[in-house]
């Protein structure tokens, strides 16, 4: 094989391995929690169908927030400080949370509608949307804090925040996504049962 191609491959491999390893570690932890969630998945029919969309929303929304904040730092649009927080940053995080909740509720609506339409047993729309929104609020809040803190600290230490966003969002997104989903299901079941 051409030496320069092999060098390019080894270089790409070395650069990607840490991020991929971190996300695998996150995914494994999320997997164990998910594997232990069978009782809840049985109790709330349709929840399993909802899971990929909810997890992806975390990645899409907070990955985009991270990329935006990182670009903003590069452009000098926002200041990396934790006190007296930049107004642009407040609006960007607010928009992320808002869009994340809308997308989660939308996912619940699509899952409920399609499953009802094809005549599969499905929990009530209220149950699914409550779980999606509560899980979205919890995981969104934690992800906002984690992503912003990591980007600011990394930036202050001279790291390129662009390289931090992907691994942080995928790793913490999976763990918190599943963990808060479990908590949200238990909360909704405790409060209302299956409507």
């Amino acid at each position: 094989m051409d030496v320069s191609i092999r060098d390019a491959a080894m270089n790409a491999y070395r650069e990607a391995l840490p991020a991929l390893t971190a996300s695998v570690a996150g995914g494994l932890i999320a997997g164990v929690v998910f594997g232990g969630m069978r009782a809840e998945l049985r109790t709330v029919p349709g929840l399993l169908v909802l899971v990929p969309a909810l997890l992806a929303t975390r990645g899409n929304v907070y990955g985009s927030l991270g990329a935006r904040v990182s670009t903003g730092l590069h452009q000098g649009l926002i200041e990396p400080r934790f006190h007296d927080i930049d107004e642009r940053l407040v609006r960007a995080t607010g928009a992320a949370l808002f869009n994340g909740l809308l997308a989660s509720a939308f996912a619940a609506l699509v899952v409920f509608s399609v499953l009802s339409f094809v005549g599969t047993t499905v929990a009530s729309f209220l149950t699914l949307v409550a779980i999606a929104v509560i899980a979205g609020i919890f995981s969104g809040s934690v992800l906002i804090i984690t992503v912003i803190t990591a980007i600011f600290l990394g930036y202050q230490r001279g790291r390129n925040p662009d390289d931090l966003v992907g691994p942080i969002v995928t790793t913490t997104g999976d763990i918190f996504g599943i963990l808060f989903l479990l908590i949200a299901v238990r909360l909704v079941l405790a409060v209302g049962g299956i409507f």
């Binding site: 990929p52 992806a56 929303t57 869009n99």
Partner: peptide
Amino acid sequence: ITKAMLPVLCILTIVEVGSGFVLG
């Protein structure tokens, strides 16, 4: 931000719900 993000997000959500149906 919502104007730029929400339409794409909704399309991606529908795509992901597709994989949910495979799980279901």
